[in-house]
C-alpha cells in the first residue's frame, strides 16, 4: 500500500472500455479528478480480473474524497463525494 491518509491523488483519465471488454469499478465521473485519500480499506481481489474468471491479484482499495462542487457543480462548496477506488487507478497529484 503506497498512499497514506491525506495523500493528494488523481484518478487516471483512462478509458479502457473504449478498446476492449472490461469490468471496471471506477465510476466515469471521477476519471481525471483530483481527490484526497481518506484511508486504506484493505486489499481485495482485482474485480477487473475476477469478472472474467482470471486469477485476481489482491490490490489495495482506498476511500478517496472528492469535492462534489468540483465534479458536479452542485454550487454548495464543502460537500463531498467519497468513493472506493483501487490503487492501480490512482496516481500522486
Amino acid at each position: 500500500m503506497s498512499f497514506a491518509p491525506g495523500t493528494q491523488v488523481r484518478v487516471k483519465d483512462d478509458w479502457p472500455e473504449a478498446h476492449r471488454p472490461v469490468h471496471i469499478r471506477t465510476p466515469y465521473y471521477v476519471r481525471g479528478q483530483a481527490g484526497t485519500v481518506l484511508r486504506h480499506l484493505g486489499d481485495f481481489p482485482n474485480p477487473e480480473d475476477l469478472a472474467f474468471a482470471r486469477p485476481a491479484e489482491r490490490r489495495p482499495l482506498y476511500h478517496v474524497l472528492f469535492s462534489q462542487d468540483a465534479v458536479w457543480h452542485e454550487d454548495h462548496p464543502g460537500d463531498e463525494l467519497l468513493v472506493e477506488i483501487f490503487e492501480h487507478w490512482l496516481e500522486p497529484a
Binding site: 469499478r25 471506477t26 465510476p27 480499506l41 484493505g42 481485495f44 474485480p47 482499495l61 474524497l65 462534489q68 454548495h76 464543502g78 460537500d79 463531498e80 463525494l81 467519497l82 468513493v83 472506493e84 477506488i85 483501487f86
Partner: peptide, 10 residues
Amino acid sequence: KLRVVDSTAD
C-alpha cells in the same frame, strides 16, 4: 456538510 458515499467496490 453533505458527504455522498458511492459504494463502488468491496
